[in-house]
Amino acid sequence: MRPDTVFDPMMQHERTALAWERTAIASMVSGTLLARRAGDLHVSLAALGVVQVVLGAALLIWTGLRYEQLHAPLRRGESPVHPFAVQFIGITTVVFSGAAMVIAIASTLA
């Protein structure tokens, strides 16, 4: 017996959650490479990459938990938007890619 209504039409919420998870994984990969490259310049700078990995992992966990929590509001018809998460990933990506750029230029000039 098929359901009459679907609480996630066109799988929008699931696709958005998957996009968040893909982004978190990409952040972890990039953080690993940043840790490796920054560690070549100075061992303490590897912490930058490690922080990016940890933030990516936290984002991955947040996405999974949030999608679970969404089921009740979605059935009630509420609109799930997360501008804070967008600002968070936007700012952290700018900061870490800027740090990678600076480290690359600094290690070339050194």
């Binding site: 893909r22 990409a26 940043l34 938007v81 690359a104």
Partner: peptide, 23 residues
């Protein structure tokens, strides 16, 4: 709104992939 959010995340993934390639 969610489509806009997914587009933004796709751009962020592109930036992260370029950064991984550069590193």
């Amino acid at each position: 709104t969610l489509a806009n959010e997914r587009t933004f995340l796709a751009w962020v993934r592109t930036a992260l992939a370029l950064s991984a390639g550069g590193l």
